[in-house]
């Protein structure tokens, strides 16, 4: 499976359009019905299989009963005759009796599953906060030492095989945090801190998506969870904690100046005077796989396309389309390329 999720981009999924629906499920990154990679999702997936199987079985039984009832041969009788009212109650007793027993079984099983996935089996290894914004995700890693805390966006790294506790907040309207192959969704409600835990048992990249209608950008509010070994995770954290490596960029650099004039009101680059907090932290922009919350792969080309055409690519986005001359574009691109 890790080969599946480790693909560098999702372009391959396109190839399966012509195949049958169920076959293409393997290529749907949010397919929680066939794939689950951690203890917060797996029991639910099995519950889903049982319920779906049972539902299909019941549908078939009822369909057969109905067909038989409609089509069965009947003795000839006076066409004006009317059946007797008192008959047939046995159908209700038996049918409802069986349904009730099955339902009570399901109630118990579903409550057991709920209990299993409601809390992590051991204390969480990492605690982080995800805050929903219109329309992206702010991610804050906590640490006892304030100097070790850091902020990133739209791409969440976790150590493999360990429970991670995620505190969920919202900066504006209600969003929902949902990485379906790792866990169910939880609403992010302003004024309230909700919690959710996830655990990935296999290294890989897991796609997530906002699951509560939140406005124009709702369709383009994706995120990714990257589960990696403890060492890789530690390495990533250390890299993220660093401020921007801008030593060779003087304040007089035109790209730097452009950024400070046009972008710094909303974006932060740690280590510079850019400290806006309405938009993703760009300190390590180029370490991320995607731009604009899962809209575009993060290439220099896409980046400048996004800066210039944000409103066309993600209508209604809080990011304005920035009018830049050709030379400005080159300068800004050069500056942004340093944000490793």
């Amino acid at each position: 499976m890790s080969t599946v999720t480790f693909r560098t981009s999702g372009l391959i999924a396109l190839a399966t359009v012509s195949t049958a629906t169920m076959a293409s499920t393997t290529d749907a990154p949010l397919n929680y019905f066939l794939h689950s990679y951690g203890p917060a999702a797996k029991p639910t997936m099995h519950l889903g299989w049982l319920l779906a199987g049972l539902s299909v079985a019941v549908c078939l039984i009822i369909a057969l009963l109905l067909l038989a009832a409609v089509l069965r041969k009947r003795p000839l009788a006076d066409p004006r005759s009317i059946g007797r009212e008192g008959e047939g109650l046995r159908w209700i007793y038996i049918g409802t009796g069986i349904s009730t027993c099955v339902l009570f079984g399901l109630v118990i099983y579903s409550l057991m599953v709920l209990n299993e996935v409601a809390k992590p089996p051991q204390a969480p290894a990492v605690i982080l906060t995800v805050t929903g914004y219109d329309w992206w995700w702010k991610i804050e890693y906590e640490h006892d030492d304030p100097a070790h805390r850091f902020i990133t966006a739209n791409e969440l790294h976790i150590p493999v095989g360990q429970p991670v506790l995620i505190k969920l907040k919202s900066a504006d309207v209600i969003h929902a945090f949902w990485v379906p192959t790792l866990a169910g969704k939880t609403q992010m409600i302003p004024g309230l801190t909700n919690q959710q835990w996830i655990q990935a048992d296999v290294p890989g990249i897991y796609t997530g998506q906002c699951a509560q209608y939140c406005g124009a950008g709702h369709a383009h509010m994706g995120l990714e969870v990257i589960a990696e070994s403890a060492q890789d995770f530690e390495k990533w954290q250390n890299a993220q904690r660093r401020t921007a490596p801008l030593t060779f960029m003087s304040n007089e650099d035109p790209g730097h100046k452009l950024f400070m004039d046009r972008c710094a009101g909303c974006h932060t680059i740690r280590g510079t005077s850019a400290a806006g907090d309405h938009a993703p932290d760009l300190t390590h922009l180029n370490s991320r796989r995607w731009l604009a919350a899962g809209l575009l792969t993060n290439t220099p080309d896409h980046l400048m396309k996004w800066v210039i055409n944000a409103q066309r690519l993600k209508p209604g986005s809080r990011m304005p389309s920035i009018a830049l001359s050709e030379s400005e574009t080159t300068e800004l691109a050069l500056f942004l390329s340093t944000l490793n």
Partner: peptide, 19 residues
């Protein structure tokens, strides 16, 4: 079951929801 959320006005082909 393929994970398509309701109320999205469009979706990317990489999500596998086309067919």
């Amino acid at each position: 079951l393929l994970g398509m959320p309701r109320r999205i006005y469009t979706y990317s082909s990489r999500m596998g929801w086309d067919t």
